[in-house]
C-alpha cells in the first residue's frame, strides 16, 4: 500500500483554499452590498469539500462579520456555527512564537471577539487575547516602514469597527508608515496589498485620525486601475462603507 500513497500537493491545496476563500469573500461582499446574510452554511452544503470551505472561512477571518459590524445586520446562527467549527477543524496555535504565528493569533483573536457577539460559544483559543507586547513587537515604530506596512496589510482583517485592541491602536499611531506603504503598493501595482492598507486608512479616518493621503481617492484609483479579485473587491467595499462613499 505504501507505494500507492501520493504526497499531498501543498500548492494544489493552497489554490483550492484560495478559490474557496474567493467564494466566501463573494458571499460577504454580496451581504455588504445588500443580500440578507452571507450563507456560509449554505456554501458548506453545496457539496464543496467541507475541510476546504472551513479553511477558507479561517482565511477570510473577521471579515465574515463585516455586514454585522458595518451595517448592523444580524449574524445568522448557522453562519456563526460554521465560523466556530472552522476553529475546531483548524485549531489556533496554542503557543505562538514566530512573527507569523503572532499575526495569525491576532487575526484569530479578532474572529473570537466578534464571534462572542453572537450566541455561538467561541471555540477554545480563538478569543484568548495575545499579549499587548506581541502587538507592540509586530508594529514596532523602530521597524522600517516597509516591514511595518507589510505586517499591517497582513493584519487588515482587524480593520473593522468593534475589533479594537492594541493592534488597532498601534496602526492608528502609524499613519506615516501606513501612507508610505500604500504609496509603495500602488506604485508597484500591488493592488491587493494597497487595498488592505487602505482599509486601515479608512477605519482610522472614520475614527477621526488625520490622514496624510486621501483614502477616498485611493479607493477610486484601485477600483479603476486594479480592482479585480473577490478579496480585493471586499476590501474596497469595506473601505467604501467606512468612508461613507456611494457603492461602486
Amino acid at each position: 500500500m505504501e507505494g500507492l500513497l501520493v504526497p499531498v500537493n501543498v500548492e494544489r491545496l493552497q489554490v483550492s483554499l484560495a478559490d474557496a476563500a474567493a467564494e466566501v469573500a463573494d458571499r460577504v461582499l454580496g451581504a455588504v452590498g445588500g443580500a440578507e446574510d452571507i450563507g456560509l452554511a449554505d456554501y458548506v452544503h453545496t457539496g464543496a469539500d467541507t475541510t476546504t470551505v472551513l479553511g477558507a472561512v479561517r482565511l477570510i477571518g473577521a471579515d465574515v462579520f463585516a455586514p454585522h459590524v458595518l451595517l448592523g445586520r444580524p449574524v445568522h446562527r448557522d453562519d456563526a456555527a460554521v465560523v466556530a467549527r472552522s476553529f475546531t477543524v483548524y485549531p489556533p496555535t496554542p503557543q505562538p512564537t514566530t512573527r507569523q504565528q503572532h499575526v495569525t493569533a491576532w487575526r484569530d483573536w479578532a474572529v473570537g471577539r466578534l464571534l462572542a457577539r453572537t450566541d455561538e460559544t467561541s471555540p477554545a483559543g480563538s478569543d484568548a487575547a495575545p499579549t499587548p507586547e506581541t502587538a507592540a513587537a509586530l508594529l514596532d515604530g523602530a521597524k522600517t516602514w516597509q516591514e511595518w506596512s507589510a505586517t499591517a496589510a497582513q493584519l487588515s482583517p482587524l480593520a473593522l469597527p468593534g475589533v479594537g485592541g492594541p493592534i488597532v491602536a498601534a496602526v492608528f499611531a502609524g499613519m506615516r508608515p501606513l501612507a508610505r506603504g500604500v504609496t509603495r503598493a500602488v506604485l508597484r501595482r500591488d493592488f491587493v496589498t494597497a487595498a488592505r492598507l487602505i482599509r486601515w486608512m479608512a477605519l482610522s479616518s472614520s475614527n477621526g485620525v488625520r490622514q496624510p493621503l486621501d483614502p477616498v481617492l485611493l479607493v477610486e484609483r484601485i477600483r479603476l486601475y486594479g480592482g479585480t479579485g473577490s478579496r480585493l473587491a471586499l476590501d474596497l467595499a469595506i473601505s467604501r462603507v467606512l468612508l461613507r462613499m456611494e457603492p461602486a
Partner: peptide
C-alpha cells in the same frame, strides 16, 4: 491555511 493567512496575497 497558516501560510495563506500571513501571505500578503493569498494564493
Amino acid at each position: 491555511v497558516e501560510a495563506l493567512m500571513v501571505e500578503p496575497e493569498a494564493g
